[in-house]
């Protein structure tokens, strides 16, 4: 298997009240293409910060992140945006659908951003896969939480990403709906052969991935690899 993500000596600090607050400290790991990985840890352990750095949403204070062979720390924000559009998919705890776009349009956007045309059919296919083809013209405010997260799943897979980052994907859902979404997430991931990186508190969900990285106080406590 080839390496899709490589994190080397990664640190992240923030200035706080005249001092420096260290959120991540000397993180190192590699992730192989097609694997599923969970990042777990207590609140404040740096999970979300790590996810943001790995996905190119933020710049590290030191160290490097190489995603699909591209050194993210050498890119500016717009170049990283192109990387995200080409290679990355996202699923968020609070769904993060664009409220002014319909469900179908939300799924179409990543493809349209690539400059692709006639993307409606493939977006509809994805909505069908998540069981929401009939709700394509509904706005997010007209959908339930579970439905919104399913649209979010369809959107995340719409640009056929190499790697998918999911931040507490079931954190805002009830148990039953959460389980349905989990099932769908792993199915889609398997079908597409995408690398999945999950950030979660939910150890049961984490146990469904190939590998678990435990964080504590900004450092790796344990890596199940």
């Amino acid at each position: 298997m080839t390496e899709i993500l490589s994190v080397r000596n990664l640190s992240k600090t923030y200035p706080a009240q005249g001092k420096t607050l260290s959120v991540l400290n000397d993180i190192n790991f590699e992730i192989q293409q097609g694997s599923t990985v969970s990042i777990v840890g207590p609140s404040g352990s740096g999970k979300t910060t790590l996810l943001g750095l790995c996905a190119g949403l933020d710049r590290a204070s030191s160290g490097s992140v190489v995603l699909n062979g591209i050194k993210l720390d050498e890119l500016n924000e717009d170049e990283r945006a192109r990387v995200r559009n080409q290679h990355v998919g996202f699923i968020f705890q609070n769904f993060q659908l664009l409220p002014t776009l319909t469900a179908l349009e939300n799924v179409m956007v990543p493809l349209e951003l690539r400059g692709e045309r006639n993307v409606k059919a493939s977006a509809l296919t994805l909505l069908e896969k998540v069981g929401l083809a009939a709700r394509g013209h509904h706005y997010p405010s007209q959908l339930s939480g579970g439905e919104q997260q399913r649209v979010s799943l369809a959107r995340a897979f719409s640009n056929s990403p190499k790697i998918l980052f999911a931040d507490e994907p079931t954190g805002n859902l009830d148990t039953e709906t959460g389980q349905k979404v989990e099932k769908l997430l792993f199915e889609l991931n398997r079908d597409a052969g995408t690398t999945l990186i999950l950030v979660t508190h939910d150890l049961e969900l984490a146990s469904k991935t190939n590998r678990i990285i435990r964080l504590k106080g900004g450092a790796i406590l344990n890596d199940s690899l």
Partner: peptide
Amino acid sequence: MQSIAILRCMGLSSKQ
């Protein structure tokens, strides 16, 4: 801002 941040996540450039 939140919508713009989502679009930026999906690869929208600042200029766009």
